[in-house]
Design a protein around this nucleic acid. Structure first.
Lengths: 198, 198
DNA sequence: GTCTATATGCTGATAGAC
DNA sequence: GTCTATCAGCATATAGAC
């Protein structure tokens, strides 16, 4: 594979991410993508296997970025409450660095297909990554309670609430790009964790 | 219009809402809806004008329910902080009573069409209702700060955070239907407002 | 690696029999 | 008010010339 074709693939993925974000996977056609890249739809197939292939090559890497990020925090020696703060900071950074790919996480993952015949279980693979992330998040949250830094709340409600906000951050950020990142971090940490501290 | 045909229409709307929730508007076909109702797709058109018509008749009423609800709270004589608590409670009730319609609010509104030629500006009408809701919400939030009950935070971040969680509540609730509603209210009020109180 | 041409199937919606 | 039959358009994807 040449460098040029790799760049072409990257461009196709980036343009697709933007279109999927704007219109949704189902409402975005291969022709839409071809137009955005500047070629005919048939030519796209020299670079990608299928429309589904594009979605998978957007969602699975971003899901792995999230998992890698929470693993690193989890392996650190910080107190659990500091780990939670770092997880929020990391999510903000991931969102700012990959806004289009991140935008697919709340909604478009559902269009991943589970083709068992071809051992192409992108749907299952994605769900597994997401569940793993949430499991670690819940575990750290419980530790912060055990360590006396958070109130003994219903952890599933609290984690749902925190993750709902972080998953939607991309859309807020699109409308407020000029905000200082440090202020955003401080405010979100206060919003999301402040009510739960002892 | 007979009672029977009204019931039929209600059933079509309810089945459609469930399908739009599960698969998304774009990925749900008229044939899917017809199958779910138990008739042929052509017969559907005796009850509804178009697929778009269904979406509009789901989203605009639920948007109006939200607006009516916040108007009533806003008109009350409660202190602003108590108004915010009531808004959260109201959103929980609306979500529990209309889970399928509410599920369309975060994502499927984008598929509303703006047909200016036919003065059928469902998209604009919806956006207007949503903007109105957010404007009132922000106003009450600012009042709670002015009344000394909330910290002088960046209100747009705080309101985004609170509304993100409330809009996603339907999906959490689907997985935890047995939770006591009072506990859910208490926990969410603590999660969403606790960190911001003076 | 891009193109034109095309295969095949599904889409929303309509016409008209009953 | 439901059906069968059908339309025109667009979907994903492929074949093969250049």
């Amino acid at each position: 594979m040449t460098l040029k074709s790799k760049n072409r693939q990257k461009e196709i993925l980036a343009r697709s991410a933007r279109l999927f974000r704007k219109k949704g996977y189902a409402a975005t056609s291969i022709r839409d993508i071809a137009d955005a890249v500047g070629m005919k739809s048939a030519s796209l197939y020299n670079h990608i296997k299928s429309k589904q292939d594009i979605l998978q090559r957007l969602l699975l890497p971003i899901a792995k970025i999230y998992v890698t990020s929470i693993d690193r925090v989890n392996d650190s020696n910080l107190p659990a409450i500091k780990k939670l703060e770092q997880i929020i900071r990391d999510q903000i950074i991931i969102t700012i660095e990959n806004p289009d790919a991140v935008s697919l996480v709340p909604d478009q993952w559902f269009f991943l297909e589970n083709n068992e015949a071809e051992k192409n279980n992108a749907y299952d693979a994605y769900i597994q990554l997401r569940n793993y992330y949430e499991k670690i998040f819940l575990k750290i949250f419980q530790e912060a309670i055990d360590e006396g830094d958070l109130k003994p709340v219903h952890i599933e409600i609290a984690c749902f609430s925190i993750l709902s906000t972080l998953r939607r951050l991309y859309s807020w950020f699109a409308r407020h790009r000029t905000i200082d990142q440090k202020i955003l971090e401080q405010e979100l940490i206060m919003n999301l964790l402040g009510g739960l501290r002892t």
